[in-house]
Amino acid sequence: MNKLHIVASIAILVAIALLVMSTKDISSYATFEIAERSQQRVKIVGNLDVTKDVSYDPENAPNYFTFNMLDANGISNKVILNEPKPRDFEMSESIVVSGKMEVEGFVADEILLKCPSKYKDEELALKKDS
């Protein structure tokens, strides 16, 4: 067995070790219930709960944005984002938030919006005057 084979085998072993290690970097999409129970940082996918208020006050609290989100089980929960309100928020089709459940609500540090701009194809744009 030559040296390169040894190095290659070591590399493969390291790769396997890293992949095993990295399994703790992944998780499934959680729900608010799981977030509440686990008290861990989780990712939740859901939709905007349009029956409740979306609140952002740029005048007094530019770093505080709250809304209510329906998770995969249809449970609505308050989400707090310590960031300005993302652009086109109301237009988003689905929302992915990462964060932890706290007393005042689900505090997210990351938000990803899936915007229908990419899905606009399903509707036909009509001329304004018709």
Binding site: L18, I26, S27, V42, K43
Partner: peptide, 16 residues
């Protein structure tokens, strides 16, 4: 089957 996602993409890749 419940799909898995990387919880913190930036952190995950940077680390390795």
């Amino acid at each position: 089957y419940i799909g898995q996602v990387i919880t913190d993409q930036m952190d995950h890749h940077n680390k390795y």
